[in-house]
Amino acid sequence: MVELLNPILWHSIVAAATFFVLPTLGEIYAERSGILNLGIEGMVIAGAAGSYAIAYQTQDILLGVLFGMFIGGLLATIHAILTITFNRNQVVSGIGLTILGTGLSGLLGDAVVGKALKGIDSTPIPILKDIPTIGEVFFDQNIFVYLSFILAPILWFILYKTRIGILIRSVGENPSASMNQGVNVRLIRYLCVIFGGMMAGLGGAYLSLGWLNFWTDGMTQGRGWIVIALVVVALWNPLGAFIGSYLFGMFDVLQFSFQHEAIPFIFPTGIPPSVLKMMPPVSTILFLAIWGIILSQQKVKSIVGAPTALAKPFED
């Protein structure tokens, strides 16, 4: 039987969840400002490849991470120009971004495929790590994980309790009204989309430098798309993103625990790995199905506060 209470298992769930937290926080800001960016997968994978390549060549992890964020921000800028300045279809542009990012990752990471690099060490937090079990699971991780702990509440605070947050949400809710109030709608949307791209790039850097410590083509395995589903599950709320990410982190990690479980008649010698790999996407789809039915009620939508102007073209 799978040992569900094993701290090592939960340690790796935290590591997997952190990957989801970072890009999801960025995408929440982009969507709150009214721009749907489906290119997360492309920005994450290009960020992962770029940061690993730079970190390998310069032997400087920090430089690699910054480069990953730069690549993510750069790709997001393309999306921003097309969708905000030129008012193009956000879905198609996002798909283009994914294709471009995947190609770019192959180019950037070509030189470092399979090359080993010492990633970021875990830095245990002095007193907190001594708490039994919890300390081992949460406070014996690397700096990215702590960053995600800090960023989620900070970004929640900015979005709901500050003037900037109100501006972002109003731009996503009713851009024309905001513009009449003298708000620079385009500027705010640009900043939010680019911030989203940089967070996706950071997530990519975490994937290759902080978590898995290698680079190979297609290593995200579609996790970037799960981020887009996560934004909805999180109800466009940074704190919700944190909870949702841990849920999907569990899907991601638990699949490996079932590798030696036999199911009578169907898989008598254990579940094959390719069947287990289906678990994260299939559970996401099922989750979205249930969530979609709940969210389709207009009343629920207004309570939840989904951005009304999301993915709608805005011409002034």
Binding site: V91, G222, W225, I228, V282, I293, L295, S296, L310
Partner: peptide
């Protein structure tokens, strides 16, 4: 029936993976 923008896009993409892994299996 989906309650939000982009659900169909995400789902249509995620359906690729079960097909791919089914083929591999």
């Amino acid at each position: 029936k989906g309650g939000f923008q982009g659900a169909d896009v995400v789902v249509s993409f995620l359906m690729v993976f079960p097909a791919l892994y089914l083929m591999q299996y």
